[in-house]
Every structure is written in structure tokens, then in C-alpha cells.
């Protein structure tokens, strides 16, 4: 019981930038590891979009007139839904960290403020890269026929990264204010429904007046238009820039809100 050295060590000097980077890396590792332990969540994040993809392609798709093969039309919608859902689950992780005392533990250690949140965000990016790749692979199997150049793929990935980052930080903010993991999980459903009232699944022109206006204002509309144009090799127009502007704006607001909420003295 007493062979272990418990002698207090002299108080180390204040942590420098290198320490901060190492701490953040350690916490990224923690969050990624947590993701691999929640296989049910990860599986749902892939299976749910795949089931929806199959439903839309084989059940509803024949009745929806888009002027192109419906599978080609709907894949951007499914990709956005996958990534959005995957990002939203971050809220549950953050809320459970806040309620079980582990955030207090990190805050009482010489670890940079917010590094624990950065860990969750990076893990979300990694999770979504995996699940999106899997969903795209399934889409290719059921007939998705992209006509994108390497540059188009890269641009599409870039739009997706900004979209995932923005939604993940929104999820972080939600997780910080939620009363617990259960409350936070409600947020994932809101995000799940975001693409429905947009141009993701059906052309917005087919919607009744008010809904059409809502759909046109929904940032998912320019985002799915941008992805569709990029993946199918069609003219992108202003969609990519509009989508990027939207999500960059959301990202900044959510990032600042999260920082304020995290620092809030409780």
C-alpha cells in the first residue's frame, strides 16, 4: 500500500502552448475512444440514413418528379441527414460530461478551458467522416451515379466539413444548457427533421406557399443544392458560397455561445 510515491511534487510552472496542445490531443483521444465504445449510436447513425435512402429510392422516389433519377437527387439529402444526425449526438456527450462531474474535474486541472469540448468536436468530425463514407458507398451500390471531378468531391467534402462543424458546435451549446443527456438527445430529432422542409428531398416549388418560403430560407436548401450540383457535375452558381456563408455564420455564433456557456460560473 505504500510503495507508491505520493510525495507532493513542487507546483509545476504554468502550462505553455505545447502543454495546451498535448492536453487537447489527449482529450481528442478520449472523445474518439468514447465514440468507438458507443457502437449502437454509431450504428444507428449509419443504419438510419441507409434505411431512409432505400425507402426514398424504392418506395417514394418513383412518385417524386425531379427531372432526374431520384437516387441522384436524394443522395445529397441523405448525406446531410447523416452528417447532421452524427453531429447532433455530440449534445448527448457534452450534456453527460456536464452532469456527471467530469467537466468539473477537468476545470479544476491545469487543462486549457474548452479542450474537453474541442475533443468532442474533433471526434464528431471523425465519426461523421466514417458514417458519411459508408452511406455514400451504399448509395453507389443502389445506383447513385455521380459525375464529379476530384475537385468537385473535394469541394463537396469542404462544404460538409463546415456544415458538420457548425452543427456540432450548435450541439455543444445545446449540451451545455441541457438539464441532462436525455434532454439533449431531443435535439438530435430536431436536426433529423431539418432537411425535410428544404430542397433536399423534393423540389421546393412543389410545396404550398408558406412552406415554400420556409424551405427557401432553410440553410439546408442551398447546402443540398450545392452538394447536388457538385456531385452531379452541374453548374453550382452561388449555392456553394451561400451554403458556406450560412454555416460559417452558424459556426461563429455557436462557437461563441458555447465558450460563454462553458465559462459561465455556476
Amino acid at each position: 500500500m505504500s510503495t507508491v510515491d505520493l510525495t507532493p511534487r513542487p507546483v509545476p510552472p504554468p502550462p505553455g502552448p505545447l502543454d495546451a496542445a498535448r492536453d487537447t490531443l489527449a482529450l481528442v483521444g478520449r472523445s474518439v475512444r468514447r465514440s468507438t465504445r458507443q457502437l449502437d449510436t454509431l450504428l444507428l447513425a449509419v443504419l438510419l440514413p441507409v434505411v431512409l435512402l432505400l425507402m426514398f429510392v424504392y418506395v417514394f422516389g418513383g412518385a417524386i418528379s425531379t427531372g432526374m433519377e431520384y437516387v441522384d437527387f436524394v443522395v445529397p439529402a441523405i448525406v446531410l441527414l447523416t452528417a447532421g444526425y452524427g453531429a447532433a449526438t455530440t449534445a448527448v456527450d457534452v450534456a453527460s460530461d456536464m452532469t456527471n462531474g467530469i467537466v468539473d474535474r477537468f476545470r479544476s486541472m491545469p487543462v486549457p478551458a474548452g479542450a474537453v469540448l474541442t475533443g468532442h468536436v474533433v471526434a464528431s468530425l471523425a465519426r461523421n467522416a466514417v458514417s458519411t463514407a459508408l452511406v455514400v458507398a451504399v448509395a453507389l451500390l443502389v445506383g447513385f451515379d455521380p459525375a464529379a471531378s476530384a475537385g468537385d468531391w473535394l469541394a463537396a467534402a469542404g462544404v460538409l466539413v463546415v456544415y458538420v462543424l457548425a452543427l456540432t458546435w450548435v450541439a455543444v451549446a445545446i449540451g451545455l444548457v441541457a438539464s441532462g443527456p436525455e434532454a439533449a438527445s431531443g435535439f438530435t430529432f430536431v436536426i433529423l427533421f431539418l432537411p425535410y422542409v428544404s430542397s433536399a428531398f423534393v423540389p421546393v416549388g412543389t410545396m404550398p406557399g408558406v412552406l415554400e418560403t420556409v424551405a427557401r430560407l432553410n440553410p439546408v436548401t442551398p447546402t443540398s443544392d450545392a452538394l447536388r450540383a457538385l456531385l452531379l457535375g452541374m453548374p453550382v452558381g452561388s449555392t456553394v458560397l451561400v451554403a458556406l456563408a450560412w454555416w460559417a455564420g452558424v459556426l461563429v455564433v455557436a462557437r461563441v455561445a458555447s465558450a460563454v456557456l462553458f465559462r459561465r460560473q455556476r
Binding site: 507546483v11 509545476p12 504554468p14 502550462p15 478520449r30 475512444r33 468514447r34 465504445r37 458507443q38 456527471n100 462531474g101 467530469i102 468539473d104 474535474r105 479544476s108 486541472m109 491545469p110 487543462v111
Partner: peptide, 21 residues
Amino acid sequence: AARVRAALSLTGQYAAVDELL
């Protein structure tokens, strides 16, 4: 605060460990 954090360890009322690890 940074020096205080380096000098002190807190064990709260609830075990602050990661359930999934």
C-alpha cells in the same frame, strides 16, 4: 488559477470518471 489547479486535486461528491473508458 492555473497554478492553483496544478497544486490541488479535487475529488467531488460524485465520481468524476469516464463511464465509457
